[in-house]
Design a protein around this nucleic acid. Sequence first.
DNA 1: CGTACCATTGACGACGGTCAAAAAACGTGG
DNA 2: CCACGTTTTTTGACCGTCGTCAATGGTACG
Lengths: 226, 226
Amino acid sequence: MLTHTAIRTGFSRAANNASPRAHSGSFFDSISLMGAAMPYGRDAEIYGENEPADYVYRVISGAVRTYKVLGDGRRQIGAFYLPGDIFGLETGDEHSFSAEAISDAKILVVKRSALLALAERESEAARQLWSVTGQELRRVQDHILLLIKTAKERVGSFLLEMAKRHPGGNDVELPMSRQDIADYLGLTIETVSRTLTELENSASIKLASARHIVLRNRRALGVLNG
Amino acid sequence: MLTHTAIRTGFSRAANNASPRAHSGSFFDSISLMGAAMPYGRDAEIYGENEPADYVYRVISGAVRTYKVLGDGRRQIGAFYLPGDIFGLETGDEHSFSAEAISDAKILVVKRSALLALAERESEAARQLWSVTGQELRRVQDHILLLIKTAKERVGSFLLEMAKRHPGGNDVELPMSRQDIADYLGLTIETVSRTLTELENSASIKLASARHIVLRNRRALGVLNG
DNA sequence: CGTACCATTGACGACGGTCAAAAAACGTGG
DNA sequence: CCACGTTTTTTGACCGTCGTCAATGGTACG
C-alpha cells in the first residue's frame, strides 16, 4: 500500500487517459476506493470559490477548469485539469478558485477528511499530499511565466503544454473554447484566434478544425520560452 | 512543542520584524534551533535555480527576491520575502527559482532533511510543511491575478500588498528597486515610474522619496481588484 | 434546413514598450 | 561638509502590440 508502483483500481482503470503523468498517481490510485465517481455535465459547477473544501477531486474523463471572476467581470482561468489530474486539494478550509466541468466529465470525489486522517497515521501519505500541492505550485509558477510573454509566445507555449499533457504526439484535441484559452492566457478571444491564424500561416501549426490542432514546428512555438 | 502559540526563540527575537503574520510562525519558531542565522550582502545569491534544495530559509532581517531569467534575458521575480517569511521550501529535490538578498539580510538556514525527518515522526510537523507550501501556492495564485490587470491596477495592488505585509500603516518603505518592482509586475521600469507619478498626481499616494511611499487613498489603489 | 453559438476577420485606438535624455539620489573621498 | 562620479529614477517622444467594437463566416444541434 502506498508504494511507488501504481495500484490500478477499478476507478482508475475506467479512466480514459489516467496515465503515469498524473499527479502522484500511485497515491490517488490507492485511495480511489475511498471515493465515488460522479458525473458532471458540460459547464456544471463542481465547487465554488470560498466554499468549504471538504472534498478532493480527480478527473477520470472529460476536462475541468478552475477560475476566478474579478470585480469587473474579467475571468481568470487558473488551470485546466485532464484525466488523471488531481484538483481541489487545499491546505486551508476553503477553495480559492471555482471549478467547472468543461465537457461532460466523470470525476472521482474523495473526502478530504479521509485523506487528512490517513496522513496523520501514515507519513508517506502526508508526504504525497504535500507533493500534490507542490506540483500544483510549480504549475502555477510556470503559468506566471506564460503571462509575461507576447501573445504569440503564450499561445505557442499553451499548445506545447497541451500537447505534452495530452497523449497523441502532434495532434492536439482541445477540450476548451477559445474564450477559455483566452481567459487562461490573459488575452482576448480575438487575439487568440488571430494568433492561431498567424501560426497556421507561418506553417507552425495546422488548424484541422477549431478544436483539433496539429503541431508542425514545435521549435517555432517554443522560441524564447526560457 | 509545536503548539499554536509562538515560541519565541533567540533567533526570532533577534528579528527586526518577525511578526504574527509570518508563514506558520509557530512551527518555524520552534525549529529555529535546528538552523543557523547567516548574513548575506546586497545582491548576494542565496541559491540558484535547479540547485539541490537542501536547505529551507527564513528571513530574519532584510529582504529577499526569488526569480527566473528567460532565454532572452527577461527576468521574472516570483516573490519578495520580508522578515518572518519562509522561502526555498520545495517538495522536489531542486529549487525552481533563484534567490538573492535585496538588501543586506540575515537569514535563518535550516536543513531540509531535518524538517523531513521531523515530519516523518510528527504528523503535525508534516501538516505545517504542507501548510507553508499551500500558503505559497495561494500567494502565487494571487500574483497571477495581478498580471492580468492594467499597469495602474498592478502598481496599486502591489502597494497595497506591501502595505499589508509591512507594519506601519500608510507608510510603505520599499526595500526593492524600480527594476525589481517592474520584474515582479511584468512591466517596464519606465511604466512603473510613470504610474507612480500618475498615482501621486491623482492624490492616491505621496512619494516621500523614491523608496518611501505614503498611501493617501487606498480605495483608488484597489479599484477593480476583485 | 434553420437557428444559436462559436470562431474568424477587419478597422481603429489606447496602453504600455522602446529608445533617449535629463534629473535626482546615493556613495565616496577629499 | 561638500564635490564628484555613479547609479537609479523620472520624463519625453514615438511606435507596436493587443484590446475594443463590429461584422462576417462556420459549425453543431434540434
